[in-house]
Amino acid sequence: MGYLARYVVLILLSCASWAGETIEPTNSLRPGDLVPDFTLPAVNGFGQRLAEARGAPLMIVWLGRCDECSETLVRYQLLAESLAMDGLKGWFVWTPEGKDQPPKMRLPVLKYEPRWNQGWQFEGRPAVLLIDPDGELDHLITGDLDDNYPETEKVLMRWLSLGRDGQISE
């Protein structure tokens, strides 16, 4: 293969790798998908990286508009804490808007900010993502967090007791 052809292939490869560096917002996650890795800063401690949470089931509550919405999240926090014995980890992801203040929680509250290129935004929020120990999305529950709490609790208990069952809850 000539030098020119190799150069063209190289440029194409480079473009592909540069494109891969920017993590785009996603709303196309479906149960069964491998959840793209991210690292987000936390408002209450160290940042969290999804890849480091592998090996344990993870519940991510991706918040919609939230200004000190701790009351809404308390039930989710208690649920995650009560199931910590089963290895469950729980994170909240908060996106500040205007002068919104973050919720004050014991679990990590991650802050999405576009300036950090190691993160991505989930456009289908508010949503609860149940991610299995291999990093695959097992359940996606979208919609109002107050309304969806009973459904989340039911799905979560069944999910942890049966392991991956591949059922979809939306």
């Binding site: 690292t39 800063p41 401690g45 160290f46 940042g47 990286r49 300036r115 290129n117 190691q118």
Partner: peptide
């Protein structure tokens, strides 16, 4: 260059 640290990295 920018980077966010996790507890494990620290």
């Amino acid at each position: 260059v920018q980077h966010l640290y996790t507890e494990r990295q620290v």
